[in-house]
């Protein structure tokens, strides 16, 4: 335990990096995922804005990206980060990789939850003179809000998991702390504390997500 105390500044840095990587990853990746997922849903046959080409392109893209294991993606994306002037090693690139992976993952979660919205309600909104665009933001998304929050909460767990993995590409997350000071130096206490901190983050996130969803869904 003394060792953990000695490493307190590393732990603090790791905790902080994990929090902002996960937070920023969830917000940016979530937003992109929401856009792609909504695109997947509305472009479907008999969707709100049916478009076969859009639907095919989005589906192929998502199906191509999603199966790539995150650790490989994090490395494969390094040239792209560099292209945008971000070092391939460190927190900046880690965020790029997390946003990229979570956007495609979340897009399917979003699509699934939108499919569950009663089409009758969308039709009613159209019958009341709403434009397709208005139907999307004022009916479709609000009607799916509760399940979407639960979906994003579910995604948060995966994202926190990613923040640990990006330790490999030099991000200063708890993953790196565990890797550098725990696993490599066979210090199980350090590893265990890092893991506990990650579990704590996930627990708090899950609790907050559940509470928010319950409030929105009123049950």
């Amino acid at each position: 335990m003394d060792r953990v105390w000695e490493l307190r500044s590393e732990f603090a840095e790791g905790l902080w990096a994990t929090l902002w990587l996960a937070g920023a990853g969830l917000v940016i990746g979530g937003l992109l995922g929401l856009i792609i997922g909504t695109g997947l849903y509305v472009s479907r046959q008999r969707g709100i804005v049916p478009s076969r080409p859009v639907s095919v392109v989005l589906n192929v893209l998502v199906n191509f990206m999603r199966p790539i294991p995150f650790i490989l993606l994090a490395i494969a994306l390094q040239p792209i980060s560099r292209y945008f002037g971000i070092s391939g090693i460190g927190n900046g690139h880690a965020l790029v990789a997390i946003v990229f992976a979570s956007a495609f993952g979340i897009s399917r979660i979003v699509e699934q939850n939108l499919v569950a919205v009663d089409p009758g309600v969308l039709e009613a909104a159209r019958a009341m003179g709403a434009s397709r665009w208005r139907v999307i933001w004022s009916v479709l998304l609000p009607e799916a809000l509760g399940p979407l929050i639960l979906g994003f909460t579910y995604a948060l767990v995966a994202i926190v998991d990613m923040t640990a993995i990006v330790g490999v590409v030099g991000a200063d997350s708890l993953g790196k702390v565990a890797l550098t000071y725990g696993l490599k130096q066979f210090d199980w206490t350090v590893t265990a504390v890092a893991i506990l901190l990650v579990i704590l983050i996930v627990q708090i996130g899950q609790f907050a997500g559940n509470a928010a969803a319950r409030k929105v869904m009123r049950r």
Binding site: D118, G120, V121, A124, A125, R126, M128, G129, A130, V139
Partner: peptide, 19 residues
């Protein structure tokens, strides 16, 4: 869309906005 404002519609399943 303007025309639809002049035509109300009600449904078997009511289709109220749950949100």
């Amino acid at each position: 869309q303007k025309v639809r404002l002049d035509i109300g519609m009600i449904f078997q399943q009511f289709n109220l906005l749950g949100s």
